[in-house]
């Protein structure tokens, strides 16, 4: 009975998103007509530095030029970035979503290291994966927690990491890919907390002893290791490798299709790899296969 009710509410939620979204349209033709592409973004790692540049910013600027419209950056937050795209107030419950109400549409596309998560896929369409990721557990250098020794088996490594979290406080951020609930950390006895600040401030929070550990995705962890060199430790993974992508409204299939075509092109001509090297030079050491793959 409970499952039936949940299914009905889910179907209604999807309809409530799809129908107004379809009405709102905002697909490629509309964007070309308006002459502007609104890029929704949250300053995060080196995707959007907050200083007017970043990997995502440069990619979307190239895409705007490609489709012949003006580029416009619309700053948002992790709590509202999906809402601002689909025009609904969305609440994630585990891997499900709940519609809480209406909100204005503020942008046409999300690109700021948006991890592809099951709940997000229910309200947003993703492009071809643009960046690899994984969620690591980090702590400060003088912590009693010690890094695991890689076993070669990701599942075993995850288990080893979670095993040391019993009774430890772990910082994450609800509504993002760093939501502790996504990785079932409480199930292993960890005391999870949602960080109130910006994701870029998670590493300094750990250094200043705000919690025993925190979860960070790989791009952000690499930036933190560079920025706070010698002050943070990576203990090990809490997730399997993930992918990031660019998010589109479900009513913008042509825009998404055009972006995928564009991404394939800059992937092949080396532009995209060049931009990744500029902002994440170390990522090639961790995920060489991802960037060596061919896109069609």
């Amino acid at each position: 009975m409970k499952k039936q009710l949940f299914f009905i509410s889910f179907v209604l939620a999807i309809f409530s998103i799809a129908i107004p979204s379809a009405m709102a349209s905002g697909d490629l033709a509309d964007i070309k007509e308006k002459g502007v592409l609104r890029h929704l973004g949250v300053p995060y790692a080196n995707f959007i530095t907050g200083s007017g540049d970043g990997l995502s910013v440069e990619v979307m600027q190239l895409f705007s030029k490609r489709i012949g419209v003006k580029y416009e950056y619309v700053k948002t937050s992790w709590g509202t970035v999906i809402n601002d795209l689909v025009g609904k107030k969305i609440k994630s419950i585990g891997e499900d979503v709940k519609i809480l109400g209406e909100t204005p549409i503020r942008g046409d596309v999300i690109n700021n290291g948006l991890t592809i998560l099951p709940w997000r896929q229910k309200v947003v369409d993703y492009s071809i994966p643009t960046f690899p990721s994984q969620v690591w557990l980090i702590t400060r250098a003088d912590s009693i927690l010690k890094p695991i020794k890689p076993s070669g088996d990701i599942n075993r490594d995850i288990k080893s990491v979670k095993a040391m979290l019993s009774g430890k406080t772990v910082l994450g951020k609800v509504g993002t890919c760093l939501d502790p609930a996504l990785y079932h950390l409480e199930e292993v006895g960890a005391k999870t907390a949602s960080f109130g600040g910006n994701l870029n401030d998670l590493a300094p929070a750990i250094i200043s002893n705000a919690a025993d550990a925190a979860i960070l995705d790989v791009p952000d962890a690499l930036v933190a290791l560079e920025k706070w060199s010698g002050q943070i430790l990576v203990l090990g993974p809490v997730s399997k490798p993930q992918m990031m992508g660019v998010g589109f409204r479900k009513s913008s299939p042509n825009l998404r299709k055009e972006f995928n075509r564009f991404l394939s092109e800059i992937w092949k001509n080396g532009t995209y790899i060049k931009l990744v090297k500029k902002y994440y030079p170390a990522v090639f050491d961790y995920y060489p296969e991802f960037f060596q793959r061919e896109l069609n």
Partner: peptide, 10 residues
């Protein structure tokens, strides 16, 4: 004890 697989490469 940080490993190459998890952070030392960085």
């Amino acid at each position: 004890g940080m490993s190459m697989a998890y952070g030392l490469k960085g």
